[in-house]
Design a protein around this nucleic acid. Structure first.
Length: 426
RNA sequence: GGAAGAGUGGCAGAGCUGGUUUAAUGCACCGGUCUUGAAAACCGGCGUGCCUUCACGGGCACCGGGGGUUCGAAUCCCUCCUCUUCCGCCA
């Protein structure tokens, strides 16, 4: 959520950013509406505060009068106060109305994009910031997509997942399960080596947490919700891990904050049926290792690059051909200021598959979270939050299987063998 | 799941028979005096959000969350949450 201050200080910048996100010119009026509502809010508060002040003074006087036994005067004061309170009640109702409206509008405005974000409408307008220049893997005759490979080698049983739970809940078995577990450990070790503290968070979160990272109110339908206990299944480890810092004021020595965590992720994916749902491309439950950083604003963009390098390192060790995209205004997420997507080329499907997304949210998320720090002048400032998948398991398994298939079976990359304890799936 | 007790500022801890409490006091922390330096001692500062002011400053709200009673609530009432202890159940 943007601060009103951000809009007030440079409304043209915000407008330009919205246009880059392909907002229609006529919808930009929401910004002026926000400023006008904020003005109303200030006016109402100023007036109401002075009335409250009068009530406080009068109450003290009544106390004194009562003590001195001057009952009549005290009663007279009381009726005065009653009038004030009637006024206050009305004022507070309109304040609440204005505040609700203001929040609602603020929630509808996406983050200000970084100047480097290219304009564009669709994923075709994303900027390739690092392309794959080497040769793509050459696969044997009759190379298969991962869903066929998974079946052939008995790694993933989608039908059993359907039987036990339903569509989109894959069941891993045998070497498939062991490969999954190996990747989790490999990713966590990589993150640990890069200085991230490992967290095993709860997999269900309360409403405050879902609100803190912005899943509520807008993405409500994407989360599984346990009505009986009023809890949400996490769609990503970002939610519980980032919420560690909800309502926190950090000190200088708390930085840098670098956290990683493995969790299963649960997504209802409502409304997305029909597109790219085959195999592991889109599932309701998948494993992911997430990296999260909370940093001071002056560091956040260098940190974003560092996180990109981290993901690159992993993909290199997995011997997967990848490219990096800087998402354009039309494709970048609502909450992000700058996002890099990683895509792995699947030689079997002959297409690029998205495997990771690394973003800087600047203060957009921390404003909602109320995650702040004291700067060198002792002033409280919003921190910057960043996160990225490092990596999402399901799609990495898919690309590993597809790219490393040989006539004899699927070759496990050398870096992963210490984790799998086998070097070939056959 | 049942019973009892408790939730106060970074921590500890008073206030909780409603009205000089602007939330005492101690510790921690920051600045200063003293000192060659440090410690001690002394002096001052020391929560968050919002409104207002060029500024100094002033105002409002917040004592687990929400609601209520009252002219006035940390203090009384309702409700929810959390923690502690005991009982029950259980990996």
């Amino acid at each position: 959520m943007l601060l009103v201050k951000q809009i007030r200080e440079d409304i043209d910048k915000v407008k330009a950013s919205l246009l880059k996100r392909n907002w229609k010119e006529e919808n930009l009026g929401v910004l002026d509406e926000i400023l006008s509502l904020d003005d109303q809010r200030k006016k109402l508060q100023t007036d109401n505060d002075s009335n409250l002040s009068l009530v406080n003074k009068a109450s003290k006087e009544i106390g004194m009068l009562m003590k001195n036994g001057e009952k009549d005067q005290a009663e007279a004061k009381k009726t005065q106060v009653a009038d004030l309170k009637a006024t206050i009640k009305v004022a507070e109702e309109s304040m609440q109305k204005v505040n609700t409206q203001l929040t609602e509008l603020l929630l509808s405005v996406p983050n200000i994009t970084h100047p480097s974000v290219p304009s564009g409408n669709t994923d075709e307008d994303n900027e390739v910031t690092k392309d794959w220049t080497e040769a793509f893997p050459t696969l044997p005759e009759g190379a298969l997509p991962h869903w066929d490979l998974a079946k052939k080698y008995n790694l993933i049983d989608f039908e059993l997942g359907v039987k036990v739970t339903g569509a989109g809940f894959p069941l891993f078995r045998g070497k498939g399960a062991r490969l999954e577990r190996a990747l989790i450990n490999f990713f966590l070790d990589e993150a640990h080596a890069a200085g991230y503290e490992e967290i095993i968070p709860p997999l269900l979160v309360n409403e405050d947490s879902a609100r803190g990272t912005g899943q509520l109110p807008d993405k409500e339908g994407q989360m599984y919700y346990v009505t009986k206990d009023d809890l949400y299944l996490i769609p990503t480890a970002e939610v519980p891990i980032t919420n560690i810092y909800r309502n926190v004021i950090l000190k200088d020595q708390d930085f840098p904050i670098k956290l990683t965590g493995y969790t299963p992720c649960f997504r209802r994916e409502a409304g997305s049926y029909g597109s790219d749902v085959k195999g592991l491309n889109r599932v309701h439950q998948f494993d992911k290792v997430e990296i999260v950083q909370i940093r001071k604003p002056e560091d956040s963009y260098a940190v974003l690059e560092e996180m990109v390098k981290h993901v690159e390192g992993i993909l290199t060790k997995l011997e997967l051909p990848y490219r990096i995209l800087r998402l354009c205004g039309g494709d970048i997420g609502f909450t992000s200021a700058l996002t890099y997507d990683f895509e792995v080329f699947s030689a079997a499907q002959q297409k690029w598959l998205e495997v990771s997304s690394v973003s800087n949210f600047e203060t957009f998320q921390s404003n909602r979270l109320k995650c702040r720090y004291k700067d060198e002048n002792g002033k409280t400032q919003l921190a910057h939050t960043l996160n990225g998948s490092a990596l999402a398991l399901a799609r990495i398994i898919a690309s590993l299987l597809e790219n490393h298939q040989t006539e004899n079976g699927i070759k496990i990359p050398a870096a992963l063998v210490p984790y799998t304890k086998f070097d070939l799936i056959d």
